[in-house]
């Protein structure tokens, strides 16, 4: 197991150069792609998330680690597909109509990917029709919506109402986030959850999917 710990440690250090080499090395030791993913790559990102939540490190370091994780992921991706290892769940995410802010949403998407979820990012200025279409088409487990202003966050309510009308609300967990959002707003609009930052967003998804 040593090599997997090494992978995790290199991710924590944020070294994108060493992670692919170590991933190759682990494969050559006949360690399965799934173990490399969960016990190496994801384990490294978990530690990073914990440290970010505690305020020990900041967003740039999280992104540097995520980049290293992704470099390893590229190598095992085809193998995971081959051995039909499924993602932990599917998340459709986007910034709502009228809002063009996406850096926060992008960070959430990256960390979710880093934790083994499949993420379909719809970008920004996303109308409800598109959210609905993608949730249905992708059979998403989670729908994430982001907004940076109080005047754009109100659109989330409309999306949730449309999900209800289309009979999709029960099939997907809706989570929301962005600077002006709060737990109480999430409750008001009947979202399933709110998270104040990207690391907590990952915890929230795990929670909602009982993982």
């Amino acid at each position: 197991m040593e090599i997997l710990e090494e992978i995790a440690a290199e991710i924590e250090k944020g070294d994108p150069a060493s992670v692919p080499a170590l991933t190759e090395k682990a494969l050559s030791q006949d360690i399965s792609a799934q173990d490399i993913l969960n016990k190496g790559l994801v384990a490294g990102m978990d530690t990073i998330s914990e440290r970010f939540k505690k305020g020990e490190i900041f967003i740039p370091e999280v992104l540097i680690a995520a980049k290293a994780m992704k470099a390893g992921m590229e190598i095992i991706k085809p193998l995971l597909a081959e051995s039909k290892v499924e993602a932990k769940g599917k998340v459709v995410i986007g910034t709502v109509k009228g809002d063009l802010h996406d850096i926060g949403k992008n960070i959430v998407a990256m960390l979710l990917e880093g934790s083994g979820y499949e993420v379909i990012d719809l970008g920004n200025d996303v109308p409800k029709e598109k959210f609905l279409e993608q949730v249905e088409k992708e059979r998403a487990n989670v729908l994430g919506m982001s907004a940076l202003l109080t005047t754009t966050m109100t659109y989330m309510r409309e999306v949730i109402e449309s999900l209800e009308k289309a009979g999709l609300k029960q099939k997907v967990k809706v989570i929301i986030g962005g600077a002006p959002l709060t737990y109480s707003f999430a409750e008001q609009i009947k979202a399933d959850g709110y998270a104040p930052d990207a690391a907590s967003a990952v915890d929230l998804v795990k929670d909602l999917l009982n993982q």
């Binding site: 967003i59 740039p60 992104l63 540097i64 980049k67 850096i103 960070i107």
Partner: peptide
């Protein structure tokens, strides 16, 4: 330029 960047770190900076 930031939005077009595929590198999230660069985008953030």
């Amino acid at each position: 330029e930031a939005s077009a960047s595929k590198d999230l770190l660069r985008q953030f900076y």
